[in-house]
Each structure stands twice: as structure tokens, then as C-alpha cells.
């Protein structure tokens, strides 16, 4: 498991939160980026579902509050980074 943010993940989050891809690190979390509020979070989840062809468990969605957690969750869904 790599310790940086995979480009496919950071580019989706950067688009949705209106940030530069470099600004997305594993530590980036809800409330730390201007666009990452509760609606931004939902929008990010929907975009990630479409990008990676997975479905998030709605009960888990509110808990995935950082890039590291999102990355780990996607890996748990079988997403492999190139």
C-alpha cells in the first residue's frame, strides 16, 4: 500500500472540492478544505462511485471523513491503484 494519494483519487477530489490536486494529501479531511462540507462530501462520494464503479454503504458514508479513510474504504471495495 502506497502512502501517497493515487492520482485518480486526488483528481476527483480536487475537482469536486475546487482545489488543486497537489492540495489533496492523505491528511486532508472534512472541514480542512473550503469545499469539503457535508454537501461536498456527498458529491465526492457520488463522483467516486462513478469513477471507480463501486457503491458506498450509506451508513459508512458519514464516517469516511478524510482522504486516508476514503482511500482505505475504496481499497476494501477491491479498487487497485496503478
Amino acid at each position: 500500500m502506497s502512502s501517497s494519494v493515487p492520482a485518480r483519487l486526488s483528481s476527483v477530489l480536487a475537482d469536486v472540492f475546487g482545489a488543486a490536486p497537489e492540495a489533496i494529501t492523505l491528511e486532508t479531511a472534512v472541514g480542512k478544505l473550503e469545499g469539503w462540507d457535508s454537501f461536498g462530501h456527498l458529491q465526492a462520494v457520488l463522483a467516486l462511485e462513478s469513477e471507480f464503479g463501486v457503491q458506498f454503504d450509506p451508513a459508512k458514508i458519514p464516517e469516511l471523513t478524510s482522504v486516508a479513510k476514503l482511500k482505505a474504504y475504496l481499497e476494501g471495495k477491491g479498487v487497485a491503484w496503478e
Binding site: 483528481s11 475537482d15 475546487g18 463522483a47
Partner: peptide, 11 residues
Amino acid sequence: PKPGDYAFASA
């Protein structure tokens, strides 16, 4: 476009 593209363009 992908979902991220819409956010990118609309902003």
C-alpha cells in the same frame, strides 16, 4: 464528461 469534470467546469 465525468462527474468531477462537471464540478471543475461549473466552478
